[in-house]
Design a protein around this nucleic acid. Structure first.
Length: 707
DNA sequence: CCAATTCAGGTGTAT
DNA sequence: ACACCTGAATTGGCA
């Protein structure tokens, strides 16, 4: 039985019966039909008509793929809101200390044992607070950190030492690359404006964003070099730590002065993927420890005070409950000697003091990263206060416990993650769902269509097309052959032609993140022998994030993701029909303005922190794509003057064709449910056919319009 | 008083 | 399994 969605769901505007849509059979069993251009139903679909046309499956339901339609619950039953908090609120947390509790003061370390002279009010000023790279005319003399590989110390602990070194002075051998020189090169390529921003005493949204972007670029570049076995001194085993150390030593960080309360430039809901990121933006200084506090030496206080905690879920009975958190103290674990009692000192003492004073504590929640099961996501969940503290003896040793509650009135952060989890496991439903998968199974993951702001029941009609459709005759570009990496291209295989085309490196990390934001990407293609799961085919494997198309209050339909997106992740390509420039003029000039044209020849200001990157990437030939009739999720991405997504040209190895695609990548970490936007660029000179549109991106850097 | 050293504290990735 | 890096506390050197 076929379902013609359009006919089934045609209703008078405003009286759309969602349940009829939702009662339809699982949409993953449907495939889109591609109507011929002469199909009158498609070209003259009425305003209240169906958004999509679907037919029944031509094949069996894919086995092994769990049906994914967690939204088949009547929309009115529940809404995402504060009152949707888990029903288990507080239940696992004893309101009073458990029976084995012992008065906490009896554990306090004797005064004077841990803290020396508390009278000292002097502040140690370190020379690390300033960015030093801008000094000394143009970075020729950059301070480099040398790690002194002192093997004689049995502890294996290396000593740090500062040492001046000329750029490019030393290299281990042919092909070797010095991580420090790479870092210096990255810093050199930065817009000097960045250092001005970073040198401000207080952080800002920009200083945080720049710090994280520089860290990310450095970390990925160092990882790429490490990956290719070309790192001199075989260091940089942990690119995250190496990049972090370089940033710290160069003073490329913000909010380096510890304080209680919000951190300027860091917003509730911001996400991080490495502990060092928390450190560099001033959210949580220790690179490992879970409790950050202001010590007695660095403040006028007589006792240490807590500023932030990271709840990593590492301690077993931290409860995970929206607004309440039970946090375990630190210590009590000895490398050589197993468990022991925790002591009321350092972080534990700081939390105890913050409890007594009623101070705010920043909370960062660590969660499993679903995309990268080995890694973690850290969600800044805002300010909490400590409500209770006690000592737990369940394990036979004293463990300090702190019960914290989230201050009311803060934007949702961790709760969003919990809600998405509930939609996923279907323990809660979603309001305003129109279609659980608007791609009708054309993508590997469903793309939800949702409107929880008004009664519009979907965007204007189009046909879902997952890939680029290029019907133009293609001229052969410079002759090239594909690779023969049968097991997939390896980063250390310099003989691989695909590695060579990318400048000697694979463009993607092992986590499929783009390593370098500044270049054209050469992926493997039809003329390569490597398998489809090759690391160099990232943009060809389709969507991996659970995206959704949603209605905004004032910008029409838009795109966002249920999953957190790491900076550098491939999001989607711009699918549609390749057209020529004459057709572009035609479409723009017609009464039916085509708002869905991608134009690679526009002027793009994509990454302000890299000044060499202000122009459109070098492309073999201009590319125009129209997605007005056929397209994928990319057609729903709105313009922003402060975008979180950018595009790169991606060339698939295909010896007889110029197989050019446009792929979108995350510029920064994007929390779930945040709108995805890219810069549409500008057309110069502006011709009559170009109609200016008022920009609604709301950014402080808004240019005012786009077209 | 300032500099150098020690120590606590897990994390991220590979095997 | 393994290699890590920061910041507070502590110790050492010097006035």
């Amino acid at each position: 039985m076929e379902h013609h969605f359009g006919q089934d769901t045609a209703h008078a505007s405003g009286s759309f019966d969602k349940t009829r849509v939702l009662n339809v059979k699982p949409l993953r069993t449907l495939v889109p039909v591609f109507p011929s251009p002469s199909n009158p139903a498609s070209s003259s679909s009425p305003q209240g008509g169906a958004p999509f046309v679907c037919v029944s499956p031509s094949g069996p339901f894919p086995s092994g793929v769990a049906p994914f339609y967690p939204f088949f619950i009547s929309p009115e039953s529940q809404r995402l809101s504060e009152q949707n908090a888990p029903t288990s609120t507080g239940q696992r947390v004893p309101a009073t200390p458990i029976s084995t509790a012992v008065p906490i003061n009896s554990f306090k370390t004797p005064a004077g044992a841990a803290n020396g002279n508390v009278g000292s009010s002097r502040k140690t000023t370190r020379s690390r607070g300033q960015v030093t790279v801008t000094e000394e005319d143009g970075y020729n003399n950059v301070e480099i950190v040398e790690v002194d590989g002192d093997e004689e110390t049995g502890t294996g602990r290396s000593k740090r030492k500062l040492q001046k070194k000329m750029k490019g002075q030393q290299s281990g051998g042919p092909g070797d690359i010095d991580p420090d020189a790479v870092a210096a090169d990255i810093l050199k390529s930065l817009n000097p404006m960045v250092f001005e921003v970073l040198n401000q005493p207080d952080g800002s949204r920009d200083s945080v964003a720049y710090t994280l972007m520089i860290y990310e670029v450095m970390r990925r570049k160092l990882g790429q070099i490490e990956d290719s076995n070309r790192a001199a001194n075989s260091g940089a085993k942990r690119p995250d730590l190496k990049a972090g150390a370089i940033m710290m030593n160069k003073g490329i960080r913000t909010n380096s002065k510890k304080h209680i309360g919000p951190v300027s430039g860091v917003e509730i809901g911001d996400i991080f993927f490495f502990r060092f990121e928390l450190c560099l933006v001033g959210l949580h200084a220790p690179s490992m420890a879970g409790i950050d506090y202001i010590g007695t030496k660095t403040s006028q206080e007589e006792e240490p005070l807590a500023v932030s905690i990271v709840s990593s879920g590492g301690y077993e009975d931290d409860v995970e409950d929206g607004d309440v958190l039970v946090y375990s103290g630190q210590g009590g674990v000895n490398r050589d000697k197993g468990a022991s009692d925790q002591k009321l000192e350092r972080g534990n003492l700081a939390l105890e003091n913050s409890y007594k004073r009623g101070n705010e504590v920043r909370v960062i929640r660590g969660l499993k990263d679903l995309q990268h099961p080995t890694g973690k996501v850290y969600v800044y969940d805002g300010l909490y206060k400590i409500q209770d503290s006690w000592v737990d003896r369940k394990t036979g040793f004293n463990v300090f416990k702190y019960k914290l509650f989230r201050l009311p009135g803060q934007p949702q952060a961790y709760m969003i993650w919990k809600s998405i989890q509930q939609w996923t496991d279907r323990s809660a439903s979603r309001a305003g769902v129109i279609l659980p998968d608007l791609t009708s199974g054309a993508e590997k993951v469903p793309v939800c269509l949702v409107n929880d702001v008004d009664t519009e029941k979907g965007p204007a009609y189009f046909t879902y097309l997952p890939n680029l459709k290029n019907l133009r005759p293609t001229a052969p570009v410079e002759s090239s052959i594909g690779c023969s990496c049968v097991g997939g291209c390896q980063p250390n295989n310099l003989n691989c032609p695909c590695v060579q085309k990318n400048g000697g490196f694979l463009p993607y990390s092992s986590a499929s993140l783009i390593a370098d934001l500044k270049s054209v990407i050469y992926e493997c293609g039809p003329s390569c022998q490597c398998p489809s799961n090759c690391r160099n085919r990232v943009s060809q494997v389709g969507l991996k994030f659970r995206l959704e198309v949603f209605k905004t209050k004032n910008k029409g339909w838009a795109l966002r993701s249920w999953d957190a997106i790491r900076a550098g992740s491939f999001i989607c390509e711009y699918a549609g029909e390749v057209i020529d420039s004459a057709r572009v003029e035609e479409e723009l000039g017609s009464d039916n303005l085509n708002d869905y044209i991608f134009d690679s020849t526009r002027i793009y200001q994509q990454l302000e922190i890299f000044p060499g990157d202000t122009e459109a990437p070098k492309i073999p030939s201009p590319l125009y794509i129209s997605a007005i009739n056929e397209g994928n999720v990319a057609r729903f991405m709105n313009h922003s003057c402060s975008p979180n997504v950018l595009w790169r040209p991606v060339i698939h190895e295909n010896k007889n064709m110029s197989d050019l695609h446009i792929a979108f990548y995350a510029i920064r970490h994007i929390p779930p449910m945040m709108e995805l936007t890219y810069d549409y660029g500008t057309v110069l000179p502006l011709k009559a056919v170009h109609r200016k549109k008022k920009c609604l991106c709301g950014s402080v850097k808004c240019r005012g319009y786009f077209c």
